[in-house]
Computed example of a mutant assay.
Amino acid sequence: MAPRIHSVATLADHWGCSTDTIYALVKSGELPHFKLGGKLIRIRGDEVERFECRSIPSEGIAASSSWSGTNRDDATNMRLERLIERQPSRRAST
């Protein structure tokens, strides 16, 4: 099976966040990536999984190492919500 490769848009859709959030993670170095043709940003599936695993709060992890996708989705959503809350607003003040 070929490794999964995500574009910024597909990863944002998968995580339920904006592409700006993904670009911020890439720019900060928190989410390793590579570029196609020197411009297109791509993120390997194993890097996504690594990010999701290290971003999960320890109190949210079940005692066993095999946990359901629901808990994983909940933990990912909590991490993404915290990241979004930290993002400075880019809207112009009126």
Results as ranks from 00 to 15, higher is better:
1 M>F: 13
7 S>Q: 09
9 A>F: 06
10 T>I: 05
11 L>Y: 01
12 A>P: 00
12 A>N: 01
13 D>K: 05
13 D>N: 07
14 H>S: 05
14 H>N: 09
16 G>F: 00
16 G>C: 07
16 G>A: 00
19 T>K: 03
20 D>P: 01
21 T>A: 00
21 T>E: 02
22 I>E: 02
22 I>K: 00
22 I>L: 02
23 Y>N: 02
24 A>V: 04
24 A>P: 13
27 K>G: 02
28 S>W: 01
29 G>S: 06
30 E>H: 06
31 L>T: 04
32 P>D: 13
33 H>T: 11
33 H>Y: 12
34 F>K: 06
36 L>I: 15
38 G>A: 04
39 K>W: 05
40 L>A: 08
41 I>V: 09
41 I>G: 02
41 I>C: 07
41 I>T: 12
41 I>Q: 03
42 R>Y: 04
42 R>F: 01
43 I>C: 00
46 D>V: 11
48 V>H: 04
48 V>Y: 02
49 E>D: 06
50 R>Q: 10
53 C>S: 15
55 S>A: 03
55 S>R: 00
57 P>W: 08
59 E>N: 10
60 G>I: 05
64 S>F: 01
65 S>N: 11
66 S>M: 13
66 S>Y: 15
66 S>L: 10
66 S>C: 10
67 W>C: 06
67 W>R: 15
68 S>Q: 08
68 S>G: 13
68 S>F: 12
70 T>V: 13
70 T>F: 11
71 N>Y: 04
72 R>I: 09
72 R>A: 08
73 D>E: 07
73 D>W: 13
74 D>N: 08
75 A>R: 10
76 T>A: 05
76 T>H: 03
77 N>M: 12
77 N>K: 07
82 R>V: 06
82 R>Y: 07
83 L>F: 00
86 R>H: 11
87 Q>R: 01
88 P>Q: 03
92 A>W: 15
92 A>S: 11
94 T>P: 13
